[in-house]
């Protein structure tokens, strides 16, 4: 079994824009490798978080994250022209999540899959995170998605509208209602938290 370790000699392209990196996906393997790696490191966290929040399963989220970037690479190799890279990437991830949800029977997810991975978070914050997670799960799917895209992924209303294929007004309303519902659900805890903080 002969394995060669390839030494990378091509230039570091960390300063390139998303679209410049995307354009390099069509090039030879070394350049495409570097470009895909950079894009992955820029966006994997967002995509992973989105998939995790939408599917509720860390393992599935990993699969969908990988599949998202494979599809991105395919698009780049085919020379598909895009204008808004984050929205395009998020659209791929969203479609994969929707496909996954459509073909998978709803299953109970082991409790350990809902573990919170935030590090160095105060106990109250961890508790709040858990409550937010629970509250998110009871939100209607469109509201949850809009909230996740806005708060976890940092997309603007316009970008969210592009991703989910709705008008910006619908996006605005969904985010507003999602936050209102979250606040309604979490209000007792938030009041208690405030009281403890004041004390």
């Amino acid at each position: 079994m002969a394995i060669r370790t390839m030494t990378r000699k091509h230039k570091v392209i960390t300063d390139d824009s998303d679209l410049e990196l995307y354009a390099q996906l069509i090039q030879e393997d070394a350049a495409a490798h570097e470009a895909l790696t950079q894009l992955y490191r820029r966006y994997s966290q967002r995509i992973y978080t989105y998939c995790r929040k939408i599917t509720g399963d860390n393992y599935v989220a990993e699969d969908l994250l990988q599949e998202t970037f494979v599809k991105l690479l395919d698009s780049g190799r085919q020379g598909r022209v895009i204008e808004n890279f984050p929205a395009y990437l998020m659209t791929i991830a969203r479609n994969l999540c929707l496909s996954h949800k459509a073909r998978s029977v709803r299953q109970f997810v082991p409790v350990e899959d809902f573990h919170l991975t935030a590090r160095d978070v105060p106990y109250e914050q961890k508790e709040l995170l858990q409550l937010i997670q629970t509250a998110l799960e009871i939100l209607p799917e469109p509201y949850r998605e809009a909230f996740v895209l806005r708060e976890y992924n940092g997309l603007s209303y316009l970008e969210i509208a592009d991703v989910i294929g709705e008008s910006i007004d619908v996006v605005k309303v969904r985010i507003f209602r999602a936050k209102k519902k979250l606040r309604d659900v979490l209000a007792p805890y938030l009041n208690d938290l405030k009281t403890r903080t004041d004390d």
Partner: peptide
């Protein structure tokens, strides 16, 4: 309240396992 929720959400930073990047490549 919204700031508290947002602050908590922003701390819920989860990076995918390093194996995913290798598997992707």
């Amino acid at each position: 309240d919204i700031l508290a929720i947002r602050s908590a959400v922003h701390r819920d930073v989860v990076a995918p396992p390093a194996t995913v990047e290798a598997a992707l490549l």
